[in-house]
């Protein structure tokens, strides 16, 4: 399923938090210059895919946790990238097919992919290619997301991908289309009520190398931590009684809750992750175009396409989200 690396992403998003705590500030200044600019043919992954630790936030690009979600101003001008897609007559989108409610196979028709991410991809394709666009979905494993974009195996990746500085050095992101955060998932009847001391003496499951694991290392509230390869494996452990609660990001936790009516999200998210559409750094016009689509997607309050999609896919298990995060622009 590939949430492991995704969770890891959260780690790098949080990296600056650590830095803010006064650990890394100097180190970052020393380590950064490497990644400045946008290399035409970037060397093979400079930054390893699972950024485990809070290392080297690329400050040379001016990226910090506060402005990481900033993107280019929207525009519907056709540049090279948009024209290339139009000429090909199809949009190639990297998606997940195992992430419940976000991108997964329709149980009634397994050849079809459905979910919140898929609806967004469709809206983008319609805007570029017209009312009945030809979309090619490529199921990209988590560890292939950045390479797929950089090697142009896909035009974009729409796959619950967290925006962070480390990734921004390698790919370009749209404005954020969803705000999530680490959260606790436990059985409804459980005495656990949030990421707090109610965890004491409990067994907590989290994905290996994930932000959840880092959080629990910092503060475990007296709980025993068990790690598994993938966040969904935690639901298995929870159902089998091998774990009492799960710590994972709220969007994915919602996917778990949707598969098991006896569990629910507990308390508030205790971190922030912004999801964005990833594209090749050279495709500036495409980034602007997607941001334009997102503007329209957010527009209309309770009647906006975004809210429709949220109501359809996520509201039942991830209630209380009032709307999309406000876009931030860097230019």
């Amino acid at each position: 399923m590939g949430m492991r690396a995704r969770m890891a992403d959260l780690g790098s998003a949080l990296a600056p938090v650590a830095a803010g705590m006064g650990v890394m500030a100097a180190a970052a200044a020393v380590l950064v210059p490497v990644l400045s600019g946008a290399p035409a043919i970037p060397p093979r992954p400079h930054v390893p895919e699972p950024p485990r630790t809070a290392v080297a936030a690329p400050a040379a690009t001016g990226c910090t946790e506060e402005n990481a979600a900033e993107s280019l101003r929207p525009s519907d001008a056709d540049g090279d990238a948009v024209q290339r897609i139009k000429k090909a007559g199809r949009l190639v989108v990297g998606v997940d097919q195992n992430s419940y409610r976000w991108g997964y196979r329709d149980p009634d028709n397994p050849r079809n992919l459905i979910g919140f991410d898929i609806d967004l991809a469709k809206a983008i394709a319609k805007d570029i290619l017209g009312p009945h666009p030809h979309i090619v979905y490529r199921a990209i494993p988590t560890n292939q997301r950045i390479d797929a974009v950089r090697q142009r195996r896909v035009d974009m990746v729409v796959r619950t991908m967290t925006i962070n500085c480390e990734r921004k050095a390698q790919v370009a992101f749209s404005t954020s289309y969803f705000k999530a955060g680490q959260q606790v998932l436990a059985p409804k009847r459980s005495s656990i009520d949030a990421f707090d001391d109610s965890l004491r003496g409990k067994k907590i499951c989290t994905a290996r190398g994930s932000t959840g694991e880092q959080q629990l290392k910092r503060e475990d509230h007296g709980a025993a931590v068990m790690t598994v390869p993938n966040q969904l494996d935690c639901l298995v452990r929870l159902q089998l009684g091998e774990a009492d609660a799960v710590v994972t990001d709220s969007a994915l936790a919602a996917g778990q809750a949707a598969q098991d009516p006896t569990v629910e999200l507990k308390g508030e998210p205790f971190s922030t992750d912004m999801y964005g559409v990833a594209m090749n750094k050279e495709d500036e016009d495409l980034v602007r175009r997607v941001n334009k689509v997102l503007e329209e997607y957010r527009e209309g309050g309770a009647d906006s396409p975004w809210t429709h999609a949220y109501d359809k896919w996520l509201k039942a298990d991830l209630p209380g989200v009032s709307g999309p995060p406000a876009p931030q622009y860097s230019d």
């Binding site: 590939g2 949430m3 492991r4 690396a5 195992n98 199921a139 494993p141 988590t142 292939q144 993938n230």
Partner: peptide, 15 residues
């Protein structure tokens, strides 16, 4: 089945 969800090693290869 796993669809790339379980990886191994420092280079994150499909387990």
């Amino acid at each position: 089945v796993a669809r790339g969800g379980k990886v191994t090693g420092p280079d994150q290869r499909d387990f």
